[in-house]
């Protein structure tokens, strides 16, 4: 236990991010996914034009919102994928590699979101 005290302190933060990401994903992702990835490109609903989308994303609050929408659910996913691999497939000997891969992926995604949203226009 005292070999890696840093892990013990990090775990609550990771769990809070998992939980917050679960809430954000549950409330916000279905409508975004349905509209932007299905209804608009497939013509089920009249898609907003480029100008409207540009105007929306130009607003700082919208960009902050999009940052949260992207970043927090990534940590939720990372946490769940980590434990699904750990328990589901019983890959326990690769625990460190999986943890670094999952949270590392979430961090890269978060940095990408921040970079893209910061540099628009």
């Amino acid at each position: 236990m005292d070999a890696k005290p840093s892990h013990l302190r990090l775990e609550p933060l990771l769990w809070i991010l998992f939980s917050a990401g679960g809430v954000v994903a549950a409330f916000l992702i279905p409508v975004h996914l349905f509209l932007s990835n299905l209804a608009f490109p497939l013509g089920w609903l009249k898609a907003p034009d480029y100008a409207h989308m540009s105007a929306l994303i130009a607003h700082p609050l919208v960009r902050l919102y999009l940052f949260v929408l992207c970043a927090v659910p990534l940590f939720h996913s990372a946490h769940r994928i980590r434990y699904t691999l750990y328990d589901g497939l019983q890959i326990k000997h690769l625990n460190e590699v999986i943890a670094v891969g999952c949270y590392g992926g979430a961090i890269i995604g978060t940095l990408a979101a921040g970079y893209l949203l910061w540099n628009i226009h």
């Binding site: 990401g21 994903a25 992702i29 975004h32 996914l33 932007s36 990835n37 480029y50 989308m53 540009s54 994303i57 999009l66 929408l69 992207c70 659910p73 990534l74 939720h76 996913s77 990372a78 946490h79 769940r80 994928i81 434990y83 699904t84 589901g88 992926g105 995604g109 990408a112 979101a113 893209l116 949203l117 540099n119 628009i120 226009h121």
Partner: peptide
Amino acid sequence: REVSSVFIAFFVVTMLAQIYALS
């Protein structure tokens, strides 16, 4: 339920692609 997290991550990737395309 646990696997749903993979699709949540996939959604975020498409979202980032949309933001990138918009920019």
